[in-house]
């Protein structure tokens, strides 16, 4: 079974958590712990200047010494803004160059703006960033992003925060079959079975935020997602049976006590 290696680091957990939408840092930390993930995404924003100097910040709670921090470019609608955000993230995280590139469209479904995403990916790779890129489930674009030099390609299952699961399993399968970099489904997971399906399709991991943070019990859902990802991964490698048109009895048809 293939190891998950991103930017020369091996990950035992194939689940990546977003840290948005939690009630407070305590809940964020508990969910991250419950999920057993090793990588979390963060957003890059202006600091709240007026805050109490003793109040905690996210990275006090989720330490970069303990977790791989994956800064995202959420809120960027152009390649230029995304690159600027990554440069800021690099300074903020003491020179770390692993980033989650997402250049969105201002449409109601927040689909990736592929034209700007491709431009930003080229610019970031040329600046030696290690780019994990959010994209649509178009196999051709996924391959192009790999060819540009992204270290990981992350197609959406469905729209961000929609909880609609994997809309196009065939596309995700094709992306996986053609890939030489890790493929991680990012966005759309609603519940554990969605994460499981992503892994059963052969994906290398799943990234999610809303499905856990907005669950009635985020800590329990985080644990459930941990199990779902492991279960789906194992099922993919165990090899599912062929689909058949007719029934096939599980018990022997001969030797029946009630038969002749």
């Amino acid at each position: 079974m293939k190891k998950l290696i991103i930017d020369n680091k091996e990950y035992k957990s194939r689940l990546i958590l977003g840290t948005g939408k939690y009630k407070d840092f305590k809940e964020t930390k508990a969910a991250v712990k419950s999920s057993a993930c090793e990588m979390v995404t963060v957003a890059i924003r202006r600091m709240n200047i007026g805050q109490d100097k003793n109040s905690q910040n996210l990275l006090d709670v989720i330490s970069p010494d303990e977790y791989t921090i994956l800064p995202n470019t959420a809120g960027c609608y152009s390649a230029k803004d995304a690159v600027r955000t990554c440069e800021i993230a690099c300074e903020l995280l003491e020179g770390k160059k692993l980033v989650k590139l997402e250049v969105l469209s201002k449409s109601k479904n927040l689909f990736p703006n592929i034209i700007e995403t491709l431009k930003a990916a080229e610019m970031l790779v040329s600046k030696d960033f290690k780019v994990m890129v959010y994209t649509t489930d178009d196999p051709l674009i996924a391959k192009e992003l790999e060819n540009i030099g992204c270290v990981c390609v992350m197609p959406l299952g469905s729209a961000i925060g929609s909880g609609r699961g994997i809309i196009n399993k065939f596309n995700i399968s094709e992306i996986v079959e053609n890939a030489n970099v890790p493929i991680i489904v990012d966005a759309g997971v609603g519940t554990a079975s969605d994460a499981c399906i992503a892994m059963e399709l052969g994906c290398d991991g799943v990234l999610m935020n809303t499905a856990i943070a907005c669950a009635r019990n985020p800590i329990l859902m985080a644990s459930s997602m941990k199990d779902a990802v492991v279960s789906g991964y194992n099922a993919f490698h165990a090899g599912r049976i062929e689909l058949k048109d007719k029934a096939s009895p599980s018990s022997p048809i001969s030797g029946l006590v009630t038969g002749d």
């Binding site: 977003g18 995404t41 890059i44 910040n57 996210l58 990275l59 925060g161």
Partner: peptide, 10 residues
């Protein structure tokens, strides 16, 4: 001048 930090995000 911009002073920037990391906050929760997906």
């Amino acid at each position: 001048i911009e002073i920037i930090t990391a906050i929760g995000g997906g």
